[in-house]
Each structure stands twice: as C-alpha cells, then as structure tokens.
C-alpha cells in the first residue's frame, strides 16, 4: 500500500494513455473499459445472464465511478503520496456502501439477483484504475465526466453481452419473449461457459472492426505517400 510506484494494471493489456480530447466520449467508446482495456471482468461475466441485471450493474458501477472520481479529484492535493491508495479504497468503499443500500431500497429482486456482486464493485479494477490514472491528476469536472463516460461505456458493454446471452439462452429480451413457443432455448449461454464464449466473440468482433479501420487508415496513408512524390515529379518535369 505504501509503494510510491503507479499501480500496475491487473489485466493482460496495459491501458494506453488517454489521448482523447473529451473525457466523456473517450470512456464511452475509444477507451471502452471492457472491449478495449479488458478491465473489470468479474461483473462483466457474472452478472450478464439477463439484460436487466446487466443494466442495473452498469448503472451501479457508473454511480460509484462518478462519485469516487469526483471525491478523489477534490482531495487530490491534500493526500500524501504514500497513503493515497488506502485513501482511494476508503472513498470507493464508502460509495459502494451507499449504492448497496440504494439498490436494496429501490428493488429487492434486483438486489437478490446481483447478490454479492454489489459489494464486490470495490474490487473492480476499472474504478481504482480511473482513480489512479485520471482523477488523481485532473480537475473535478473533468473527473466527473470521465467517471460518467467510463461507467456508461461499461454499462453499454454489459448490455451488449447481456442481450446476446439472454436472447440465445432464454429467447427473451428484457423478459419479453422474442420467438414462438417452438424455440428451444440454448441454456448453455446462461451458464458460466456461455459467458466466457460470448465475451470472446464480442472481443473478436471489436478486434475485426479495429483491424479493418487500421488497414483502411494504412491504405489511405500509403495512397497519400504515393501521390505526393508523383506530384513533385510532375512539377519537376514541367
């Protein structure tokens, strides 16, 4: 807890430095916590067996991210470097306790479905990563926006995963049956292996998009590089 080095990311891929101009859009899409940074895998896989649970979890995490980011940004100049992680964890644990009681008051059925995963938001690596990587350096309003963007990006990813699993595994969307009575639900997708495989498929989808985009950009750059010398050549000839 007392080491002054930055927290290493606990997941395979190190998150790239935030380069986007707008922190809100950055979290929502470019640096999407699940599809791009591959952070916060536990709730992503455990809670997404229905769209409703996925949405509830995403919104709870958004609230925690926004409030902890704001508070941490407020106290960033008061906290000594050695005890900063302990302070962040205390702030995050407080926000999570608030959410825990809020969800319990709002809907008992959602509370029961999410179970121990609401208190476990404390151990979600996205939150500590944003606290260390963004809120501890930036002003309050930008941190709030970043927390909201990251949280909604997380909720978006959970909903994507949840809809695939609910449609295939139960044949419903938000509890509404989509197919006729002859539909045989593919129960595997509601079970743990289905969670792993559908996240793998989403990751492959997003990698394909990014590869196509990169190839297009490379081709455009190559075309630009070819035309410029040709233009110069023409000038020289004339």
């Amino acid at each position: 807890m007392s080491d002054p080095q930055p927290i290493p990311s606990c997941c395979g891929t190190a998150p790239p430095a935030p380069g986007g101009s707008n922190p809100f859009v950055n979290g929502l899409w470019k640096q999407n916590p699940v599809f791009v940074q591959v952070l916060g895998m536990c709730p992503t896989l455990a809670i997404t067996n229905s769209v409703r649970n996925a949405l509830a979890m995403g919104l709870a995490t958004t609230f925690v991210l926004a409030s902890s980011n704001t508070l941490i940004s407020m106290v960033r100049k008061l906290v000594p470097k050695q005890v900063r992680i302990a302070t962040y964890i205390a702030i995050i644990a407080t926000s999570v306790t608030v959410v825990d009681y809020l969800v319990k008051a709002a809907s008992i059925s959602v509370y029961k479905a999410l179970g121990p995963f609401i208190p476990l938001i404390v151990a979600n690596c996205i939150i500590l990563e944003r606290a260390e990587g963004f809120a501890s350096k930036k002003p309050v309003f930008a941190s709030l926006l970043d927390g909201l963007g990251m949280g909604l990006g997380f909720a978006f990813a959970l909903t994507c995963l949840g809809s695939v699993r609910e449609i295939l595994g139960a044949g419903t969307f938000l509890g509404v049956p989509l197919f006729g009575s002859h539909f045989e639900p593919w129960v595997l997708f509601l079970l743990p292996p289905g969670g792993f495989i559908s996240l793998a498929l989403w990751l492959v989808t997003f990698t394909t998009f990014r590869q196509i985009k990169a190839r297009r950009a490379a081709r455009a750059a190559a075309a630009a590089a070819e035309t410029v010398p040709a233009g110069q050549l023409v000038e020289v000839r004339s």
Binding site: G12, F196, I197, A200, L203
Partner: peptide, 13 residues
C-alpha cells in the same frame, strides 16, 4: 484475430 484475450476466454470456457 483471436490471439490474446479472446483465445484465453475460449480456453476458459
């Protein structure tokens, strides 16, 4: 295409 996290997820599955 599947190298990295996606492959690990398939193995975990």
């Amino acid at each position: 295409l599947v190298k990295g996290t996606a492959l690990t997820l398939v193995l975990a599955s």
